[in-house]
Simulated assay, not measured.
Amino acid sequence: MEHDRTAEATEKTMALTARQLLATTTGKLAPDPGANRLVPLLARGAASRDTLAALALEQRWVIPADRRAFEYLAHRTAGPAPDTAAYFTALAEGEAVAAEKLAGFAAACGAGEERAVRHDPLPGCQAYPAYVAWLAVNGSPAETVLALHANFSAWGGYCATIATALRRHYGFTDEACAFFDHFAAPAPGLDAKATAAVQEGLAAGGLNQDLTLRYGRLLLAYEAMFWRTLWELEGAQPD
C-alpha cells in the first residue's frame, strides 16, 4: 500500500513537471512579434489575393508532408513510448482533417486543382516540413514533442488572426476559413497527450533541454522563413 502511494505521488510530481516543461519551453521559444510580417498585413486586409492563393498552394505540400512525418514518429515510438506515439498519432489525424478543410480555402482563393498542378513549391516555404521530416527520422521523440508543442502555440495564434481577417476583410465564408479555425482552436485532449508524452520521457530517464531548444529554434526559424517567403510575394522590401 505504501509503495502504491509513493508511486502515485511520483506520478503526480512528474505530471506537474511535464506541464511546467511544456509551459516554460513554449515561453522560451515564443517568436519575435516582428518576425512575421505577413499576418499583420492580412489582419489589416492589405495582403493580396494572389498571396492568399500562394499560402493555400504551399499548404497543399506542407500538410501531407507533416502528416507522414507524424505517422512515422508514431511508428517509431509505438513500442517503447506508447503515450508519445499517441501524441504523434493525434497530430497526424489533425493533419488529415486539415487537408480536407484546406480545399475550401483554396477554392475561395482561386487556387484549385489546375493551378495547383502548375504551382512550383517555394523552397522558403517548404523548409519547415523538410525539417519536420528530419525530426521524424533523426529527432529524439520526447524533445521533439516539446519543440513541436511550442511552435504550435505560435502557429495557432497566426491562424486565429487569419481566420478573423478573412471574414472581416475578404468576405470569406466559414467553409473557406475552416482550415484556420481548425488550427486556431485547441485540439481536444492534445495538451493532455503532450503532457503524458513528456511525462513518459521524464520517466524513461529525463529530457535534454538543450536539445529541445535546439529543435525548437530551428522550427521557429523555418516557420518564420515560411511567412517571410510569402510576405516577399507582396513586393515589400526589408527595412
Score class of each variant (00 low, 15 high):
E100G: 08
E100L: 07
G104F: 13
G104M: 13
G104V: 13
A107F: 02
E113W: 03
E114D: 13
V117Y: 02
V117N: 03
V117P: 07
L122M: 08
L122K: 14
P123D: 11
P129Y: 07
A130Y: 13
V132K: 04
V132S: 13
A133E: 08
W134A: 14
V137G: 01
V137M: 12
V137P: 05
S140C: 06
P141C: 08
E143S: 01
H149S: 13
A150W: 02
W155P: 07
G156F: 10
A160S: 14
A160T: 08
T161Q: 15
T161N: 14
T164Q: 15
T164F: 09
A165E: 05
R167C: 07
R168Q: 11
H169S: 01
F172Y: 10
F172G: 12
D174L: 07
E175Q: 11
C177Y: 01
F179H: 14
A185V: 12
A185Y: 10
P186R: 15
P188K: 14
L190C: 06
K193L: 15
A196I: 05
A197W: 02
V198Y: 06
Q199T: 03
G201Q: 06
L202W: 02
A203R: 05
A204R: 09
A204Y: 00
G205Q: 00
N208W: 02
D210M: 04
Y215H: 05
L218S: 09
